[in-house]
């Protein structure tokens, strides 16, 4: 990773840290209400207070439909099912769950399943990601 890229990744990463950093920096004990808050299942947001969201429509992008089709094919071949996908999305943790695009969560979950099942290795996957990034950055 180049020095400039390293610096920008670290800056972005620091901006993701919770504001109340000390309280969330692996405390020795936590009160029950925080345990309840921290163990709330991520996708179970129905009924939570929120501010009004602007409604805007967008059409699907190619990578989104490619992701969808890849994930469905993995389902047909028995690699996973929709309930596993939902659980794996929750497993991403709050930062990645809300930080990734919707289909970014899908494809990350799919990758996780393939690694868990020994169908690909993390270095194989990482090498491919790096190869594609290098190719796109050249363009």
């Amino acid at each position: 990773m180049s020095k400039i890229r390293y610096e920008s990744v670290m800056t972005a990463d620091r901006n993701l840290n919770p504001t109340e950093h000390e309280e969330y920096d692996s405390p020795y004990t936590i009160p029950n209400d925080r345990y309840a808050a921290l163990t709330t299942v991520l996708h179970d947001v129905g009924g939570e207070p929120d501010f009004p969201q602007a409604l805007y429509t967008k059409s699907e992008e190619e990578w989104e439909m490619n992701t969808y089709v890849t994930c469905e094919c993995l389902g047909w071949r028995g690699a996973w099912n929709s309930e596993m996908r939902r659980r794996l999305e929750n497993d991403l943790g709050k930062t990645q769950y809300y930080g990734f695009p919707y289909y970014g969560r899908w494809i990350t979950g799919a990758a996780r399943v393939l690694v868990d099942k020994g169908l690909i290795t993390t270095d194989e996957l990482g090498d491919k990601i790096d190869e594609i990034r290098a190719r796109l950055e050249k363009k």
């Binding site: 163990t39 709330t40 299942v41 179970d44 129905g46 009924g47 309930e83 939902r86 659980r87 929750n90 497993d91």
Partner: peptide, 12 residues
């Protein structure tokens, strides 16, 4: 029930 990792039963 406690739903530590995953649930389909809404908290509301």
């Amino acid at each position: 029930r406690t739903t530590l990792f995953h649930t389909r039963t809404q908290k509301y």
